[in-house]
């Protein structure tokens, strides 16, 4: 059975919501009742059926709306998609990875036919049917990375590997949590992570970099990151911070359940074969506090995580203004009962 794609918005009237299936699909990030920044990298192996980990590239009921929102962002600000010239081989590697993965996991929605370099791609949800020559940019309507990431949920960065470091030299970034591709493009691994507090001191980035440099073809890895967002807004970019920043002051005890969202990033990384680059995908998932509360274990745990969050992290994630109100709202959904280990609902 195919997915039912919803008609919904991430701006203006904010009609986004999760169906009960989408709530159970949500990659809840907290495996215990407290949180501290950690490398927490694990193999990107297939997860349980119906979970966000079932397939390497996850497509869900928000697919069409996500792609519509991306197109709006790009129309307003084309600099959200940029690629340095030496990344063209990596761009084609990404086309291959995403088309292969999406068509294998969701054959009812996507079809890829390859005959040597003559490729035929059908994307039914978006009404796309294109024949092109793999490796020949002139045969696509956009450059290769832009072409395929206009059709794939989540942000994507291509990291070039040189001199024992990784360089953010390419990206499609329209739904980021407060970082700017236009500013960060060309930076090394530690440079673009510079604004992250606490983690540098404990050597997290040294270990993560060494691990990523040794990544092998066919052995993708993933980690989760999280923050909170007011309103179901995908484009929480610094570029538009002066437009959405006031959202953070609109939270009241009455509207916490609908306005405050947990935003989880499923970050997956693959070694790309012919460019030796790494693709770093950042897939964002949003869930309302009211939706969290439908899974008793999750609301208990999120309440405890927010109560014990180090203040530096709360400030970095921009939660300070509404953290207490959210804690108070969640407290009504935390009876103090112990929670079971792991992220899955009980």
């Amino acid at each position: 059975m195919g997915l039912m794609f919803k008609d919904e918005t991430y701006r203006g009237d904010f009609t986004f919501y999760n169906s009960p299936e989408a709530i159970r699909h949500f990659p809840f990030p907290f495996h215990e009742d407290k949180y501290m920044y950690a490398v927490n990298i694990e193999p990107h192996a297939p997860g349980p059926k119906g979970s966000a980990y079932e397939f390497p590239i996850d497509v869900d009921e928000h697919y069409v709306a996500d792609m519509k929102d991306r197109a709006i962002v790009l129309a307003e600000d084309p600099l959200r998609c940029q690629s340095l010239p030496h990344m063209i081989t990596a761009e084609w590697d990404l086309v291959e990875l995403l088309m292969t993965s999406m068509s294998e996991a969701y054959p009812e929605h996507f079809t890829l036919t390859r005959n040597g370099d003559a490729w035929h791609w059908i994307n039914r949800p978006l009404g796309i049917d294109d024949e092109f020559t793999f490796g020949d940019t002139s045969t696509l309507r956009y450059p290769p990375m832009e072409y395929i990431t206009r059709q794939c949920q989540g942000d994507f960065c291509l990291l070039d590997q040189r001199d024992g470091d990784l360089w953010m030299d390419s990206g499609m970034v329209t739904s980021q949590a407060d970082w700017s591709l236009d500013f960060d493009i060309g930076m090394s691994f530690k440079e673009w992570h510079a604004p992250v507090p606490l983690a540098h001191e404990v050597g997290i980035f040294d270990r993560a970099l060494k691990f990523l440099l040794a990544m092998q073809i066919g052995r993708p890895v993933r980690r989760l990151n999280w923050t909170m967002t007011i309103n179901p807004r995908l484009d929480t970019s610094p570029e538009n911070y002066h437009k959405w920043g006031t959202d953070r002051t609109t939270v009241t005890p009455e509207n916490v359940g609908d306005k405050v969202h947990l935003r989880v990033e499923l970050q997956a990384l693959w070694r790309l074969p012919r460019s030796n680059a790494i693709v770093f995908s950042i897939r964002g998932y949003l869930i309302k506090m009211r939706e969290v509360a439908t899974i008793p274990k999750w609301s208990r745990r999120l309440h405890r995580v927010l109560k014990t969050l180090p203040p530096e992290l709360a400030a970095y994630k921009g939660l300070t203004r509404y953290q207490q109100m959210t804690i108070d709202w969640l407290a009504k959904h935390d009876d103090g009962a112990p929670t079971t280990p792991g992220v899955w609902p009980e």
Binding site: S180, F183, G186, E191, H242, G245
Partner: peptide, 27 residues
């Protein structure tokens, strides 16, 4: 004309630090 605070984040490609709106949340 926005009022910006200077973030200690530097882009070599731009040869510049980053300026971010300081009163975005409460104008």
């Amino acid at each position: 004309g926005l009022t910006l605070f200077v973030r200690d984040h530097y882009s070599r490609r731009l040869g510049a630090f980053q300026g971010v709106c300081v009163d975005a949340e409460v104008p």
